[in-house]
Design a protein around this nucleic acid. Sequence first.
DNA 1: CCGCTGTTGAGAACGATTGTCAATCGCATG
DNA 2: CATGCGATTGACAATCGTTCTCAACAGCGG
Lengths: 140, 140
Amino acid sequence: MIHADATDAPDPGPRRTTKQREAVRAALASSEEFVSAQALHQSMRQAGSTVGLATVYRALATLAEDGEADALQSGGEALYRACSPSHHHHLICRRCGRTVELEAAAVERWAGQVAAAHGFVEPEHVVDIFGVCASCAVAR
Amino acid sequence: MIHADATDAPDPGPRRTTKQREAVRAALASSEEFVSAQALHQSMRQAGSTVGLATVYRALATLAEDGEADALQSGGEALYRACSPSHHHHLICRRCGRTVELEAAAVERWAGQVAAAHGFVEPEHVVDIFGVCASCAVAR
DNA sequence: CCGCTGTTGAGAACGATTGTCAATCGCATG
DNA sequence: CATGCGATTGACAATCGTTCTCAACAGCGG
């Protein structure tokens, strides 16, 4: 209920290379911002693809699982974005979705220490900053 | 799509004191952990209340809006918890849901500075740590 | 006590996501 | 290169959390 355990999926399983998954990967890579599965599906269809919605959902799930994409929940829907493989956080414009990847060793350390201090193990953390980027700010 | 703007709801509006909203507030206060609207509704019904599900949703939304409850998304559903009015973050057990409120002035400062450094204004941040608490860890 | 409104409960409606299942395709193998 | 197993796909139905609708109801200021 609270949170799925990462150890519940020990087996990434076989993973075939298909046109569809590659197409989703490419479409995702072509977007600088976080996009929803539905939006990605629509833009792929408009670009001539015949990929199915369910396939887009499945592909995004596996990409996120494999660490090739970051996922976040916003406004009741899941948003995805191609991202660098190393651990990082995000600074996201809540108007246009423009995203900056952040490294923050100090925050990592803090999270680990706080968890340990309270007897918690296997700490994971969610750290995202939302704001209005410079260009959106002037456009008001 | 990305994130609702806090300034979109400038008017908290009048807010009447009703038995139902008080009941929801009380039910929420009686839980140490984050609970879903559905779970809260069920426990209230089992306790003899005849409150409607929609009302629970509405009450939780207003409580969160008024800063009397914290909300977070987990596993595709919204979870709520009565919380102290001051700004804080959470350390949450992903097995039992036990929650510790955290103060972290350093993180607040960091978030503000990072946002400013990238030209972002009106920064808000989401910082939560998930882990397995001591008692759940030994129970394995 | 009245009346104006915000609120409620039941159920329908909704939208995002996932499940189902037969057809298809990747890929290792012979 | 032909073959076969099984993962993957696409269309569609189903599910699930949440919100909407609307008539009945209940705070609360006067």
